[in-house]
Write a protein that binds this DNA or RNA. Structure first.
Lengths: 377, 377
DNA sequence: TTGTAAGCGTTATCAT
DNA sequence: ATGATAACGCTTACAA
């Protein structure tokens, strides 16, 4: 395989000069540059990045650790990351962690072994100790979609609290009083923030919190199904369910379907995160959406700016606004529509979600004793 | 950062011995191994893979080049690839080409520069010359989803011809005679094979081919929309449309919707490739599906077996069977169902697709003069 | 502007 | 079973 020495020989210069051309150093004579570039072309020379990395201590690669690329939310985030990374000259190492501690740990070792320049991660836990390896080695890191406790690290998240609050408020406005929430893992901030938003909305409406209506599982369809079954088996008779992510929502649909119940006639359903192509063909599910693509772009841009030292040294937290998309799944629409759907019959309404105001925040902290409101909202 | 020399010193052995331990060489004294492993743990040593790669000429990485990870088909393939690669100790370099020649070329350079051990690619064109760089450098390659002309290379594809034939036959059985097909790029075998399947089904039913009913665009929603509009504007009055991929199908839905027409009452729709979560909530679209996850797994396994030299030297072509999933979108169901859907009201039927038999093949070649049937079916 | 020399951290090769 | 030595292909530091 052609090396830099071959090119140098052909161009009649030293390897260093070729290196300078490759790295677009300024101090190269244009004529020399031409010679070298011709030699590179003629020999189809492509530098060996292992060798470059070994010497330069940079890999021009970043790792992306997400729970599951198969979830359309993560797919979209990944695409954003890839686009931004690519245009900055970085490659992406893709890692699915499945929210699995062992897998995440394994991948952190891969990340360290490969000496990637930076990491974008949606960690399975808010516990900073799980990311010790990254921190110890001072690998530039951006956490996405979730907040971390115990480590001031760059973070890009959606405003889950306000989104959830808006979603539940919407249900309440439609007359629902018995609303259940199906949350994800306890130590995952996005799951918890959505429960917080739920609590806020109920409190603001003067509806007492029934702890039995708050369920926690995993961000998985199977979990949504199980939790729904438990909920309905216990005879709590919720009139609406808030699924804290799209996978859980699908599980709710399944469980409700199996019981011969109907959405929204028998039970309403809202969800955090959309199911992209579904809305396209069947504008059904009322959801709070985060700008997933932008989240990916922003995370990558933030990381790259760190790598280039363009950023001030303070870790930052970027909070992206959410939108409420009101569709059919909580009722309020005729239920005798012919198949298939036309968007003029099943219109959808997209509304930006307002974050909590300072007064609302203060008021809430007063009214709800145990409430922990993260700084971001 | 800790190096192999640090570990060696601590364990009181030479770096080579540490290397042997890392690489689980057999000829290491168990006691020595223990000492080394302890030292590794104590120092939190993780080998530098750039250095390893430079010396060993292996990167333990493979590149995955797909059109767009955002398309659920590719998402699923990617997940399969990642799972298989991970369990073989390989990392994945993710590259979205957007079916764009420039992007693909760019990524081929990245691939070469990074000296990945192998490549899994869905190339934007069947022209082998576009992959010259891979071939010249003898980078082990598996082509997925598409056939390549002019290069005998490992390939994993779905049986597009039989799938398309089954899909169109289904339409014909329901009484459709004026069926349009919206295909993808001319030089993409999956697109062309699906048109071939279409042609076969019509011919077998004795329906003459109307060239105006065959449209070609891109595998994009916008393209599906445009093509549908053109088709309908020209007054060809198709009673059914066959979209050759899921993105195109979504464009058809849009266009039909905008005209105030309904699927399937006014026009039927079938598609190649499912839209995963859609079917979950709204079992609507009749489709031919390929086992996308298995395609990813198979492609990665094939590649890894090449890398490990476990395979005979012949390039091979793996053809995965397709299934027909019959749902609502071509009619034959009541159209006065209340929202939302219950799967017992909108049942779906999944049928394995039979490949063309030898006799059928022979018969077809006789009846259709210009027909080019690829070897795989 | 260009070149020389050294070294990045590992493993292949050969020797013991 | 273990070690010494060199080399992988490049870039940094310094010199000219």
């Amino acid at each position: 395989m052609t090396t830099i020495a071959d090119v140098a020989k052909r161009a009649g210069v030293s390897p260093v000069t070729v290196s300078r051309v490759i790295n677009s150093a300024s101090n190269v004579n244009p004529a020399t540059r031409d010679k070298v570039e011709r030699a590179i072309r003629e020999l189809h020379y492509v530098p060996n990045s292992a060798a470059r990395s070994l010497r330069s201590k940079r890999t021009n690669a970043i790792a992306l650790l997400v729970p599951d690329i198969t979830n359309p939310f993560w797919t979209t985030v990944a695409r954003g990351v890839e686009d931004a990374a690519q245009s900055g000259g970085y490659s992406i190492l893709l890692c699915n962690t499945d929210e699995d501690p062992t897998k995440q740990l394994h991948y952190l070792d891969v990340v360290i072994s490969r000496r990637v320049d930076g990491v974008i991660i949606a960690p399975y836990s808010a516990d900073a100790r799980k990311l010790k390896r990254l921190r110890e080695r001072e690998i530039p890191t951006v956490v996405v979609d979730r907040r971390i406790q115990g480590w001031e690290v760059d973070t890009v998240i959606g405003d889950s609290i306000s989104g959830a609050r808006a979603l539940v408020k919407h249900l309440i406005d439609l007359g629902h009083q018995r609303i259940a929430v199906l949350s994800g893992p306890l130590n995952t901030s996005s799951a918890e923030d959505r429960v917080t938003g739920y609590t806020i909305a109920l409190t603001e409406a003067g509806i007492p919190i029934d702890r039995r209506m708050i369920r926690r599982g995993e961000f998985k369809t199977s979990s949504g199904e199980t939790l729904t079954n438990q909920l309905l088996d216990e005879g709590l008779r919720p009139t609406a369910i808030f699924a804290t992510n799209n996978s859980i929502a699908l599980g709710v649909v399944d469980a409700v379907d199996q019981r011969g119940l109907r959405i929204p006639q028998d039970i309403a359903l809202v969800s955090f995160d959309d199911i992209p192509h579904l809305s396209h063909v069947f504008p059904f599910l009322t959801v709070a959406v985060q700008p997933a693509y932008e989240m990916g772009i922003k995370a990558a841009q933030l990381l790259l700016s760190r790598l280039n030292g363009e950023q001030d040294s303070q870790p930052c937290q970027i909070v992206l606004p959410t939108c409420l998309i009101v569709r059919y799944s909580c009722g309020g629409k005729p239920d005798d529509i012919n198949l298939p759907f036309r968007k003029d019959i099943l219109p959808e309404k997209k509304v930006p979600v307002q974050p909590l105001s300072l007064e609302e925040r203060r008021e809430l902290l007063r009214r709800i004793p145990g409430l922990k409101l993260p700084a971001y909202c």
